[in-house]
Computed example of a mutant assay.
Amino acid sequence: MRYAANARMYSVNPQAAAAWKELFGWIARESGVDLEVVDHNFPLPLAELWARKDLACTFMCGYPFMLTGQRQRPVAAPIPANAPRKGQPVYATRLVVRAGSDFRSLEDTFGGRLGYTVPDSHSGYNALRHHLLPYYRDRKARLYGDSVGPLTTPRRVIDALLADTIDVGPLDGYALDLMLRHDENLRSQIRIIASTDPAPAPLLVAAADCPDEAVAKLQSALARVASAPECASLRDRLCLDGFAQVGASAYELMLQWEEEARSAGYAEPG
């Protein structure tokens, strides 16, 4: 059987997209699992991709992974080279502003315009809300004059910043690393003013009924990415140290963060 592979979440530019395609090709050869890199680009909903019955190696955000009714199978999660906990499959959200703005702290942006991606995103919504929750509790009022979204993708968050339609926005830290790796000009256009607590990174998933044998073969191949000499260039181009096996229990943290916010009456970041 042919299985679907997709890295839309981290195909943040043509260079990264090409590198992911190469890596999936290597994984297919190493594992013996027939992978087809499928296109599912914005504005197609990610939920439609994640509902496919032929998934075997497709990136999925951990938050909707925990919210879905029929849960996909965890395969592995990336270990970003710049992970907030070195050597672990975790990431954080970077809160960014325009480089030329006067904002020097997150508190400086309060009262302004906050961007977000989509409500079922961890990095662009759930982690953002968790980071803002202590400020909301302290002030007992909304923090921003306007919440702008859904912006959907990290690139569109940056575009909104540069177009001056938002003052601050959330970026998946690993996605930002990939953007900066392949676009040096971006470093002079945006500035990080805060980072959220680390959380488990988005994971590669397979469909719920994907055979155990296929999942095991993929996990074995993914474990070799970290040390395979032929993957050295790919690791560099993908800002990647390797992959680690993960279980669903690691992502319960995201539901805890959601419950904390909702219990405090802070359902929507803003």
Rank of each mutant, 00 (worst) to 15 (best):
M1S: 09
Y3P: 12
Y3K: 04
R8Q: 04
W20Y: 01
W20D: 10
W20I: 03
F24G: 14
G25W: 14
G25P: 01
I27V: 12
G32I: 06
V33C: 09
V37A: 03
H40G: 05
H40F: 03
L46R: 09
E48K: 12
A51K: 15
L55R: 07
C57D: 09
T58R: 09
L67V: 12
G69L: 15
Q70E: 13
V75K: 10
A76I: 01
I79N: 00
P80F: 04
P84R: 05
G87C: 08
Q88A: 07
R94N: 11
R98L: 03
A99M: 04
D102C: 05
F103V: 05
D108F: 13
L114D: 01
V118M: 14
D120Q: 12
H131A: 02
R139Y: 15
L143K: 03
L151N: 13
A160D: 06
A160T: 10
L162W: 10
D164T: 07
P170A: 01
R181S: 08
I190Q: 11
P200W: 03
P200R: 01
A201P: 04
L204S: 11
A207K: 01
A208S: 11
K217I: 07
Q219R: 12
A226Q: 09
E230K: 13
R237N: 15
L238H: 13
L238G: 08
D241K: 00
D241A: 13
A244E: 15
L253G: 01
L255Y: 02
W257Y: 02
W257M: 00
W257K: 00
E258D: 07
E259D: 04
E259A: 09
E260G: 05
E260F: 05
A261P: 14
A261G: 00
G265R: 07
A267E: 11
E268H: 09
P269L: 11
